[in-house]
Design a binder for these strands. Structure first.
Length: 331
DNA sequence: TAGGCCATCTGGTCCT
DNA sequence: AGGACCAGATGGCCTA
């Protein structure tokens, strides 16, 4: 169990055993437990030369005949200094924790405005960033070319460079019709068991949305100028896929689906992030029992994100999406 | 059990 | 001097 204690490269020169080893502890975790018990969490692990120098200092005080060292004299680490050092370290640890929590909160906020937000299937950090990049890129394409975001190319763009599970998740989310208002408690339920899903008709009419990306994929498009919508017809993203320059991870592209989104709007038309729904809740039990449920055709059954898909869309307000979906699936 | 993901601690560096 | 930021190390948890 005891792992080799490897300090960072700078600390690699130290030959002293770490304090938690001195204490006969098997691991840093045991050390942490010890520190928690003793109220010195984050302190015992901070083996430093300063720490060592305390003992040297005490030795020197006892042994006055020791030859003096050359070079810059190291500051003596008195007990008071050590206490200050420890206090500093504890404060720094707390700040670092806070900082990382802030970073994680920001990532959570980012997840919420992604087209496949789900509390039950959280995207990893790296996948969140990749999807965000793709999302920006895809929406930019919509703005520039005026092409429909309902085409396969759009989903291809979103999934570019994503891992297979994330691609499944995104595709699973986007291939469903625009229904939205789902309370958070629904998100905790299994889609199979959830029979209380309400469908919200999506007819948002413009104006004062804050800067994107807030809301549903179509909500984003409502920011576009009317002439852009005029040209929304058959998707042609697939015909000239934008150059995705630098994904460090080039996962396989997944077959595209149609899109919807996952945000609901408040009465006044502003996005209601609190009610953003989970993709897991997209599947009304009526459809699940009506024989229209299929697995997503992305290595179905091999992913933990595999989800059932209602291909009929009979119950969804946007029949065009359902029609397009059927076309895509029958390709 | 291996691998992915994550939280935390830590020391170094840069900036105010 | 102290804080922010960063990257390396480590161990826990979870899943295939």
């Amino acid at each position: 169990m005891a792992k080799t204690f490897v300090k960072s490269k700078e600390m690699g020169e130290l030959v002293n055993t770490p304090s938690w080893m001195d204490k006969g502890l098997c691991s840093q975790n045991e050390m942490k437990e010890e520190e928690r018990r003793s109220g010195t969490y984050g302190v015992l692990g901070s083996l430093t030369e300063e720490h060592d120098s305390i003992e040297e200092e005490e030795e020197e005080e006892e042994d006055g005949e020791k030859p003096k060292r050359r070079g810059p004299k190291k500051k003596k680490m008195t007990k008071a200094r050590l206490e200050r050092f420890r206090a500093r370290r504890v404060k720094a640890n707390a700040r670092e924790r806070t900082r990382m929590h802030g970073l994680n909160d920001a990532l959570d906020n980012l997840r919420r405005v992604m087209p496949c937000y789900s509390k039950t299937q959280k995207l990893s950090k790296i996948e969140t960033l990749r999807l965000a990049r793709n999302y920006i890129w895809a929406l930019s394409e919509v703005l520039e070319t005026g092409q429909t975001p309902e085409g396969k190319g759009f989903v291809e763009m979103l999934c570019k460079g994503l891992s297979q599970p994330t691609s499944n998740l995104v595709a699973g989310c986007l291939q469903l019709g625009p229904q939205s208002v789902l309370l958070e408690k629904h998100e905790e339920k299994s889609p199979i068991c959830d029979s209380t899903i309400s469908v919200h008709n999506f007819n948002y009419q413009s104006p004062g949305l804050p800067s994107p990306p807030y809301g549903h994929m179509e909500t984003h498009l409502l920011h576009l100028k009317p002439q852009v919508f005029k040209s929304l017809g058959e998707s042609s993203f697939g015909s000239h896929p934008p150059d995705c320059s630098t994904p460090p991870y080039e996962g396989p592209l997944t077959p595209p689906l149609s899109i919807s989104g996952n945000f609901s709007l408040k009465q006044d038309g502003s996005p209601d992030l609190e009610k953003s729904y989970s993709f897991m809740s997209h599947y009304p039990s009526a459809n699940l029992s009506s024989g229209h449920v299929h697995s997503a055709p992305f290595q179905a059954g091999t992913s933990r994100y595999d989800i059932p898909i209602d291909m009929s869309y009979d119950s969804y307000p946007h029949h065009s999406i359902g029609t397009q979906l059927n076309t895509i699936f029958t390709d």
